[in-house]
Design a binder for these strands. Structure first.
Length: 577
DNA sequence: GCCGTTTTCGGCCCGACTGTTTTCAGTCG
């Protein structure tokens, strides 16, 4: 059973939590948390890397000790150090730390003074009013804990929401704030601006004229369920949906520094500040300052901030401290793909199967997107739920597309199909109909719980078929839903490269599959990807932007993405030798 | 625990808000 990177990261995070509660050195704790993030961010499976004898200390932040611990987890499935820690400190205390208002110090006090070991113990102590008597605690804190426990029961753990949902909430809030008086600049920063597939909270940054009532207006918004804090430069609220929103107010000379600061990521900021420290600069959300008298040298724009530490501008999607700073230093920051670069969509459905619009309507919608081409890829027969096409109905659709191509101007309609990859790796329509098509989009719908080995063989076998063009939504994951099947993507990408097949980045906001790490792995392996919407209605064509965001997070440039090419180029590229 | 064009030891990002406090610790981002 292979160990996932996420599991190794979980072990490190648990170690960090317990060390934190024990009052260990903060920097040692930070090292564990940093290592956890590095492991999660690696495009490859760490277990495979360990088995191949790769030196993990080449990643900055992983030293000899942590590399050894990773090896131990990979080889034994556990970490002895964590077992030891759990003997001294009840492991459930780390759950207490996740609660609002409780950090390591308070959890330690609750444990030492009141013998609290878990959430039940905490609840009991709070209800019996024993917590308010502790030094550093009070009535309000006790009440806060009970409220937090109550919320936990209702909602479970705080969930991140999909970018698509966050976008709507953010747009409405920003529009509302803009209608207030005196706002100059306004931007939503944080993971939202870095276009992460999910967003934990919203950070809104504003500059405004004197006497603006922006803070009042912010907390008076109709969707606010609770005001967590309200100050002159910062306020926090919880919306009725449970989403946290922060508003920060900074002077205009600080706008760029603040935007940089609040966009993060935290690791990226720490790295940039580290560069600043070496140059004798102090960087905070108000600007960049030099020397003892703290002379302001930058702050109005993000470009200024980067320039002060000797770097070119770095796009928000890259700011994860995954090598972008080193790349920037060497003038090798990728020129990221943009939405305008996309010239066609290669995966859409019509009402012949489970789409909502007709062929003609989808073509018209694609023209309105400004596309040069559109591939119609309805489901194949195995997907009975979607009224999948058999050879006869597909032949009819091919004729319809040929006819339509003769009539419409300014766009080429490609003939395709979304083929089901059967459990034995065969495709569910015969070659003599597939040869009539411009491309096939192949994907897995059934038997998703095969072993990693069998699933990988299934797909590679399917790719052996010369009519296999694109492997769609390659992991099958649904964000916030299904985890995705077990599959060795590295082997799949290698096989795809050898056979001239392409992988899809599915732009649907529930999928975004390939994810950012996968995209980067594809790029490093020299494999091109297509970004497609898998549209089931004409309005879904707008999902393309989410695919582009994810591609940008995966460092993809225009040339890495096939459907940035013109129709004549793509025609040749799709055909396998 | 990690790291090194000042360094193999001594640093490691920085500020706002709250609650419990008479000057600050803890938490958060």
């Amino acid at each position: 059973m292979p160990i996932h990177n996420r599991e190794i990261a979980d072990v490190f995070n648990r170690v960090a939590d317990l060390l934190d509660i024990e009052g260990e050195n903060q920097f040692r704790i930070r090292a564990y948390r940093k290592a956890a993030r590095i492991v999660v961010d690696l495009p490859r499976n760490v277990g495979d890397m360990v088995r191949e004898g790769e030196d993990l200390t080449r990643f900055s932040g992983i030293g000899k000790d942590l590399a050894g611990k990773i090896k131990e987890i990979v080889e034994t499935g556990v970490l002895g150090q964590l077992k030891e820690l759990e003997k001294k400190t009840p492991p459930d205390l780390s759950r207490l730390m996740k609660m609002e208002g409780l950090g390591p110090k308070r959890v330690q006090t609750l444990h030492k003074e009141l013998g609290i070991n878990d959430l039940d113990g905490l609840k009991k102590a709070a209800e019996e009013n024993r917590i308010r008597k502790l030094e550093g605690f009070g009535e309000k804190t006790e009440k806060l804990i009970l409220e937090a426990l109550e919320r936990m029961k209702d909602e479970g753990e705080k969930e991140r929401i999909k970018l698509f949902a966050a976008e709507q909430i953010a747009n409405d809030y920003v529009d509302y704030l803009k209608k207030g008086r005196g706002i100059k600049d306004i931007a939503v920063a944080g993971s939202y601006r870095r276009r992460m597939e999910t967003v934990g909270d919203l950070d809104i940054l504003v500059t405004c004229k004197k006497g603006s009532q922006v803070m009042e207006r912010f907390v008076e918004y109709e969707d606010v369920a609770k005001v967590l804090s309200k100050g002159t430069t910062r306020s926090s609220v919880v919306l009725r949906t449970g989403l946290h929103v922060d508003l920060r107010l900074v002077p205009q000379v600080s706008y760029g520094a603040a935007l940089h600061y609040f966009t993060g990521s935290r690791d990226h900021n720490i790295a940039v500040r580290g560069l600043g420290v070496k140059l004798g600069l102090k960087i905070n959300e108000y600007g960049v300052f030099r020397g003892k008298d703290e002379e302001r040298v930058a702050g109005r724009t993000e470009e200024e901030v980067y320039r002060q530490v000797g770097l070119p501008y770095i796009e928000p999607e890259l700011r994860e401290n995954r090598g972008e700073i080193e790349a920037a230093r060497n003038n090798k920051v990728p020129i990221l793909i943009r939405r305008d670069d996309i010239r066609g969509d290669l995966h859409v459905h019509t009402n012949e199967t489970d789409g909502r619009q007709t062929l003609e309507e989808m073509v018209q919608a694609a023209r309105e997107q400004g596309y040069e081409y559109l591939a119609i890829t309805d489901h194949s027969k195995r997907v009975t739920m979607a009224k999948g096409l058999d050879a006869r109905r597909l032949a009819k659709q091919i004729d319809a597309i040929d006819t339509l191509n003769g009539k419409v101007r300014g766009i080429r309609i490609l003939k395709g199909i979304e083929l089901d990859i059967l459990e034995d790796g065969s495709l569910d329509l015969p070659d003599d109909i597939l040869k009539e098509l411009d491309l096939t989009v192949c994907s897995i719908h059934y038997n998703q719980n095969l072993s990693r080995k069998r699933m990988t063989e299934r797909v590679i076998r399917a790719m052996d078929n010369p009519f296999f063009t694109i492997f769609a939504h390659p992991t099958g994951r649904l964000i916030g839903g299904r985890k995705g099947y077990e599959i060795d993507l590295e082997a799949i990408m290698k096989a795809a490269g050898e056979r001239g097949c392409v992988l899809e980045l599915n732009a649907h906001p529930d999928r975004l599959d390939l994810d950012d790490h996968n995209c980067r792995m594809a790029k490093e392996m020299g494999l091109r990807v297509v970004i497609s919407t898998d549209s089931h209605s004409s309005s879904d064509l707008d999902f393309m932007r989410f695919g582009v965001y994810q591609a940008r997070r995966g460092w993809l440039e225009k040339d890495d993405v096939l459907n940035t090419r013109s129709f004549s180029e793509i025609e040749g590229l799709l055909k396998r030798k």
